[in-house]
Design a protein around this nucleic acid. Structure first.
Lengths: 247, 247
DNA sequence: CGCCATGTTGATTTCTATCAAATTGAGTGG
DNA sequence: CCACTCAATTTGATAGAAATCAACATGGCG
């Protein structure tokens, strides 16, 4: 990955020591996790001709709420936060996108949320018009996109329960269990380590809490020997404590 | 509507003074609001052969979380609450279904929420296997279902902001504005009246509040001359107050 | 080494939940 | 028609969880 891929339109010149599609969808590390699992080798070849790798550095904005959807993205490496903002600055993080996640599943004309890189990230990028035309010709891709959207809707409903009805402690436990499960699907993760590349403020905005409460609850969990805080994340000490509390 | 429709499989013998598909999709009052808008007259005829009108009385359960999805529903009259429950009894109402809304959009194997009739209701019912087979042959129906699912996802994200970041007063204002907008799409509504057929507890469980807080906030709004409480709903007195507060 | 963003900890306030009681109102049967 | 019942709602008093306000600590990086 020292040589930028052919179709690359780098947003930045950040180091390329990141997994990505490279130049061949057949060897893509996130293919089996992503929308592309719906495609056969032949269709993959067609799609590949429309793809370009985009690299974003930490804090870069992939797109903003209200922006026209000119491209859709398939995350291959890194983490993004998805944000809705209120006019007075209050934020709700509606989700974190991990490798394999697709941004633009809805095929709407404008983005309904802002996406920012939490870590350096790589995404397989398609022009919306191309991608939509391709999907128009491949009904099973639409079906797969619908499956992914349904799964997202399901997660959104889970999150409503969390936001509406859980205590701060339950929210944190649920979040950590969720991140543990989601990282387990991503190749190359260290089992046992729950990576938390996002800051405390992002976690707070995801859980409908303040940064102080997030900090207090996590540190209390550490004092109670439920977990240990490590660089870039946490490790569970008492898994059953989390299983009992989590949604 | 005094004579039950041909394919009817009534859950109850409740009065039929309710709008419904009747026996002909072409005259269905919610067609233009529903998934069926994707279909031409010919396709509508095919779909009609698979449809049956179901009638549910107040409080009836359409289906429960975890149940197998044996039928999907297109609501033609009445209101349903969609509920996720925690083991200890805490509830989150994830949404209210109004005429034109489709239940089963995701085509998953099991329901992820419980649906209960808030009012007597009528739904156009399809066996899941039939509906799925039909959609398999009609890619534009899948596309339309995907559009509807995307719209629901969008509403779910709005609701996350509400649950995570709004105050009780803002939550109520947003809810009332949302209901006003949604009823405006349904034929036969009285403009100006915001119908609230659901009880205070349902509203509380939708907004992540308690029944007491919902009651207090609405009654305070009435004392402040922002709205008046009327049988079966409210009327706005100061629309701009709500526009300013709502999400 | 020191700077600045990020995170932690402490003190206090506030909003909403909880607990408790009164009120309303729809449905029932005398 | 009117008392009665029971559920739903409203109102009041108090408690409590998390927010806010305010330092302080940490740690990555020039």
């Amino acid at each position: 990955m020292d040589i930028p891929p052919r179709h690359s339109d780098h947003e930045t010149h950040a180091s390329c020591a990141l997994r990505s599609r490279g130049d061949d969808c057949r060897f893509c590390g996130v293919r089996h996790l992503s929308i592309c699992q719906a495609l056969n080798i032949n269709e993959l070849d067609q799609l590949e001709k429309m793809a370009s790798d985009s690299v974003f550095e930490e804090r870069a904005v992939l797109f903003r709420e209200e922006d026209e959807v000119s491209s859709v993205f398939n995350l291959t490496a890194g983490v993004a936060r998805l944000i809705r903002s209120l006019p007075d600055g209050r934020r709700q993080v509606t989700g974190f996108a991990l490798p394999g996640d697709f941004l633009g599943i809805s095929l709407e004309k404008t983005w309904r949320y802002t996406a920012e890189a939490v870590t350096p990230l790589v995404a397989c990028r398609f022009r919306r018009s191309n991608f939509e035309a391709f999907s128009e010709k491949n009904p099973h891709l639409i079906k797969k996109m619908h499956e992914f959207a349904s799964q997202e809707l399901n997660m959104a409903q889970d999150h409503m329960v969390l936001l509406g009805r859980l205590t701060a402690e339950e929210k944190l436990a649920s979040f950590l269990v969720e991140m543990k499960k989601r990282w387990a699907r991503v190749a190359g993760h260290e089992p046992g380590l729950i990576r938390l590349p996002m800051g405390r403020q992002d976690i707070a905005d995801y859980l409908g809490l303040t940064i102080e409460t997030v900090s207090r609850v996590i540190n209390q969990m550490q004092r109670d020997r439920k977990l240990v805080i490590v660089p870039d994340g946490v490790r569970f000490v008492d898994q059953s404590y989390f299983d009992d509390l989590a949604l």
